[in-house]
Nucleic acid binder design. Structure first.
Lengths: 227, 227
DNA sequence: CCCGAACCGTACCGTACGGTACTTGTTTGG
DNA sequence: CCAAACAAGTACCGTACGGTACGGTTCGGG
């Protein structure tokens, strides 16, 4: 129910950052819960009003519109998953690999989370019409953070002489592809992916992916250490 | 719900053999067109009836239900993309690489096609509720073919001594991840992915992915050719 | 003590959808 | 040539949604 009222000041990162009073946060929390267990079909203003103990009129006063409400849900959820990886400017090889593996683990955990899946389903469903305003918002708010973290990680590895690449974009794309593969789409389609069932499986998948990435991008020739 | 036991005497109940008389095929074609340019929002029985010059009653008689109609659309579309790669039992290294690249090219072309995107969006939107019957159908009808072709390809390469792997599933997953990455989800979200804009870009992406795959799975030690 | 703002609960409106029923051609086979 | 089947077109029904309006209630400030 309540995550203790956020005393966040200076949350300003780049753009947007409306901080949603505590009442609105509660409503958005209820909205996400409703969306997770009902899909966009089960998510309606009347139901949300009942679930959040507020009136529909207030919903429209606060968020203006249904799409405004959805947008608010996206930014609200994105503001919750702000993760910060501990960075070491000059990591050892093992340390770096560990950081990469942690990144992969976090990425898989986030992507397989029910809230992420529900929001992505919603945005994808809406992407057919209205030119994907919500999809853009989702990629902007959700993916950007991940991409930033990964690229910082890659730069660190390159500076430390541990990995080698020319195109950082391409390296990131490869890393992402190796970690996630088609599992994201399969989960979005409702399948249960065995490689992501439980934390142990996720860790195994992360380790496998990072092993391959290392064999592709390692600066040295220690690629014989494959499991 | 029920598949009606009505006058339908064709035994196409279970799997495969979707013959769909020519009239039904036309209707399904119109349905796909409508879905592509309207999304699931713009796709309604009344609109389809008007677009296909048929009556709603006929729609319900032929497909039983809205979900039945959607399922028919999926299987119909799947029956159209039946691709057959020319297989060579004992290809040379270059020939094999070419086959892999062709596969990657075809995969990217199919995934970025508007019909595929629309159907995937539909199934994903429906996956929130109703336990993803349509999603399963889509993976079964659509992905299976691709997976079969790829695995046959991998086996061929292994038999020819060109690539080496223990787990075929894992090798396929890696191949898929290297080719597609997160571009599928991004397209589903409505983004325009530059790496897939036009056939030349797709070919370049395919070649890049297969290059990496080869560096990971080549049987020889020619992996020193890193760029 | 009162006033006004905020807000909950509910009722309401227009619309649009899925699904059904009926009427009117049009085919088809005996 | 006729009757039975089939299908187009339309009208219709129940429902459910997005969005709005209204009465009652709380709460903080003057």
């Amino acid at each position: 129910m309540m995550l203790a009222s956020d005393t966040r000041e200076t949350a300003a990162a780049d753009s947007g950052t409306e901080d949603f009073g505590p009442r609105q946060a509660d409503v958005l929390e209820a909205a996400l819960t409703l969306l997770v267990e009902g899909g966009d079909k089960g998510f309606t203003t009347a139901r949300l009003a009942r679930a959040a103990n507020c009136s529909k009129e207030s919903l429209y006063k606060w968020f203006g519109d249904r799409s405004g409400l959805l947008a608010a849900m996206v930014t609200y959820q994105a503001s919750k998953v702000r993760v910060a990886g501990s960075l070491n400017a000059r990591p050892s090889a093992e340390e770096f690999k560990r950081q990469l593996t942690d990144f992969a683990h976090d990425l898989l955990t986030v992507l397989s989370g029910p809230t992420s899946l529900a929001l992505n389903r919603l945005a994808i469903g809406e992407a057919g019409r209205t030119d994907a305003q919500l999809g853009h918002l989702l990629t902007e708010r959700g993916r950007r953070a991940i991409e930033e973290r990964a690229k910082k990680l890659l730069d660190t590895g390159k500076r430390a002489g541990l990995i080698r690449f020319d195109d950082r974009e391409e390296a990131f794309a490869t890393l992402y592809g190796l970690i996630v593969g088609d599992m994201h789409v399969r989960m979005l389609l409702g399948e249960t992916v065995p490689a992501l069932a439980g934390d142990a499986a996720i860790s195994a998948q992360a380790a496998r992916a990072i092993g391959k990435f290392h064999r592709l991008y390692a600066a040295g020739d220690d690629m014989t250490t494959t499991a």
